[in-house]
Simulated scan of single mutants.
Amino acid sequence: MRRGITRRPRVRFDGWIAGMGTSSGTRLVLGHWQRSPFGPFSDVMLERADGERLLLAPTRETADFISGTYVFDTVRVVPVDVSITDDTWTVAAGPLDLRFVTGRRRLVGLVLRAVPGALARRPAWCALTDRPARLLLPGVRTRGTAGGGRREWYGARDLLPIRVVSAALDGAHLGAMAPVGPPVRFGFGSAPRDPAVTRVTTTVAFGSQ
């Protein structure tokens, strides 16, 4: 892990989180971060139908940080490449080939876009929105306790539905798009049950600070 990161009181990640299920029972969560303590990077968390939790991360330091915050059964360091063309996202991450297409923004997305970015990034705002988020998006939490005594806050700023998903893991197709159900068990909350891409600022505070 990059020297000094865990000595900071808090660190922030700005980008997008995409969550989706498949008819095979595998659920996937993509993190696509334009700004982070590690620079721009992307990672993928998967939970298989049998409950195995897998992390695909591009470097050892990102893998160590993420696996110190969330819980996985297997961690693999592999190249994670994401390209976005209009409404189509293409992801190549070691054994995973993923493609999904987003749809038109709905009411929740329009409301989130109206929240000023400076406000959405504040942990106090994330704490205030935790209960409404649980009611509107079952399984979603905007604050909680993570691994290693860390605390997290999620400040959402946009949300787009996912319309189409095509995914293969180790060459085996994962089936058609499905809800994120049961909820994934990487941390204290899950992705929205309905497949979606959320623009988010994630703040991580270290318990020793």
Rank of each mutant, 00 (worst) to 15 (best):
R122F: 01
R141D: 09
T90Q: 15
V77D: 14
T22S: 13
G103C: 08
V115H: 03
F188P: 09
V29I: 11
M1C: 14
F13L: 06
G155W: 07
L128R: 13
R113E: 15
Q209L: 06
S83Q: 15
G148L: 11
D87W: 05
Y70P: 00
V165S: 12
A178P: 05
R122C: 01
F72K: 00
G103L: 09
V11G: 00
I162K: 10
A127N: 08
A127F: 02
T22W: 13
G144F: 07
A49G: 05
A63V: 04
M1K: 05
V91H: 04
E47N: 00
I162L: 05
D86T: 08
I17E: 10
G68A: 09
L135W: 15
R35Y: 08
P116G: 09
P40M: 08
A205W: 01
P9N: 06
T102R: 15
S208N: 12
T6H: 15
R134C: 03
P179R: 05
S23Y: 09
F100S: 04
R193W: 06
W153P: 00
T59A: 04
V108L: 07
T201E: 14
T85M: 14
A156F: 14
T102S: 12
L119E: 01
R151F: 05
T142Y: 05
T6W: 15
R143Y: 11
D87V: 12
A63I: 08
P195G: 04
F13D: 06
